[in-house]
């Protein structure tokens, strides 16, 4: 849940990047971290990685600036994608205000995407939240692989698998090249801050 400190006039929103293992969640955060101005970002915290895999979570704090006197900060989290880290994933998801589902376009990971989205939905339900009621965008990552010999899913296939029920905004991206990373972040940031302020704050600023 968003942290709102009326005495300090600060709002902290939590956005979680969710998705199957190795879909590029950490790479998304690394790209954001390396591109943002120093004044707007904090130090990226990566906890416990083994090889290229996130075992606990990554965290990147961003400072959005002041709106109506409120200092708005966004904290971007990733979850470990591997199935075995279900408990950690659920823990990181706690208190999330916005979600980015990062989908892996490799054909061999097609089922993993669907399983991961279902895992997200189930974990949210355990916290009493409904996925369809939360700010959510879906990112189709690794689109740079489309032109390689590696078999990949088309956007239509990904849409059919992942977005037929939710009908949310989707973004094609390539986290390693930076394509689509900020478009995704911009959209989820808008949705999340609106969601948080509508829910908790709007009446305070009238």
């Amino acid at each position: 849940m968003a942290l709102i400190d009326l005495s300090k006039k600060e709002i902290h929103c939590k956005i979680v990047y969710y998705g199957p293992g190795r879909c590029g969640k950490t790479t998304n955060l690394l790209t954001v971290h390396s591109s943002m101005a120093d004044s707007a970002r904090g130090k990226m915290l990566t906890i416990e990685t083994k090889g290229d895999r996130t075992l606990f979570f990554d965290l990147l704090p961003l400072n959005l600036g002041k709106i109506r006197g409120f200092n708005i900060r966004i904290q971007l989290y990733t979850v470990p994608g591997q199935v075995m880290y279900a408990a950690t994933r659920k823990l990181v998801l706690k208190g999330a205000d916005g979600l980015v589902f990062v989908a892996d376009p490799l054909q061999v990971r097609r089922e993993r995407n669907v399983e991961s989205l279902e895992d997200l939905r189930t974990n949210l339900l355990d916290y009493g939240l409904k996925l369809e009621e939360m700010p959510l965008v879906i990112q189709y990552n690794k689109r740079d692989l489309v032109d390689t010999p590696i078999p990949t899913l088309t956007v239509e296939e990904l849409d059919a698998d992942l977005n037929s029920a939710y009908k949310v905004k989707t973004f094609e991206a390539s986290a390693v090249t930076g394509m689509g990373v900020f478009e995704t972040l911009r959209e989820i940031s808008k949705q999340t801050v609106r969601y948080v302020t509508n829910k908790h704050l709007l009446h305070e600023t009238k």
Binding site: A40, I67, R186, V193, R194
Partner: peptide
């Protein structure tokens, strides 16, 4: 909000 986010990103 949109303005602030657009400016940032």
């Amino acid at each position: 909000i949109d303005d602030a986010i657009d400016t940032l990103f």
